[in-house]
Amino acid sequence: MLLYQALVAPFIEFEFMRRALAGIVALSLGGAPIGVFLMLRRMSLVGDAMAHAILPGAAIGFLLSGLNLFAMTFGGLIAGFTVAILAGVVSRATELKEDASLAAFYLVSLAVGVTIVSMKGTNIDLLHVLFGNILAMDDQTLLVIAFNATLTLLVMAVIYRPLVIECVDPLYLRTVSRAGAPAHLAFLALVVINLVNGFHALGTLLAVGLMILPAGIAKFWARDITGMMLVAVGSAMLSGYAGLVLSFQTRVPSGPAIILVAAVLYIASLLFGRAGGVVRKLFPGRHLEA
């Protein structure tokens, strides 16, 4: 009965908790597979940089029409796409690596975004933009998040094969197909869409959290990419749910609570993971016959 009170009752009693949970499910379904690819392409920090690149666009939307969902989403998408496409094109056309061109964008964007929000809004608005508020999502926000997650899964299904080959052996893909560049750009677009998604729930600073941490967790449990994506989605949902419960019971802000739970899962996986966890490495068991 106590467990029921702690784990189930909040979601039955309060509508905002149910909305938050639905939002987390959608965010996990779209974001976690993207996170796995970001990690495998060694682009985890690129994802972080992109999250900040969204900020000025969302902030301009905020400046023009206040905390309006569509203005901020639209602004964020435009800013994110601009940076993603610029960085993608620059890295394909020149010797400069993608991370180098993104690092500059990221610092500038964060500074510009915070400046714009501070000019018009209050500190509360700034906190909302930086850390999101998953407990205050209205119907529209929830629908946007669900739509973006659905779009992500559909596009991923379309570009999956070229994307995998592009990751493993880009030169080979170039000799058999022209799908490499479109797949890469579509992937960057999905990164942006999911960051905008995460932005509403977790804010610009933690938006990548539900993408990268689950991917890190998955790395320690699965050895093939399908398994990784399943583990990542599962652990993202679990983190979201447990984070919401934690936040409800202790008044820890919801965004950080979710990421903290994910971090605990990550550390546990790091230590006890079946695929390359620390304990397994220290005590591997007797070596095999062949």
């Binding site: 052996d169 197909s177 990419i225």
Partner: peptide, 26 residues
Amino acid sequence: ADIDRSFPISVFDFVGTGLWRTSGPF
């Protein structure tokens, strides 16, 4: 060969990409 050997893909799937011209992306 510019192969990311740390990418989690099996030998079977990797070799299977040789069928790209008949299988294509889908």
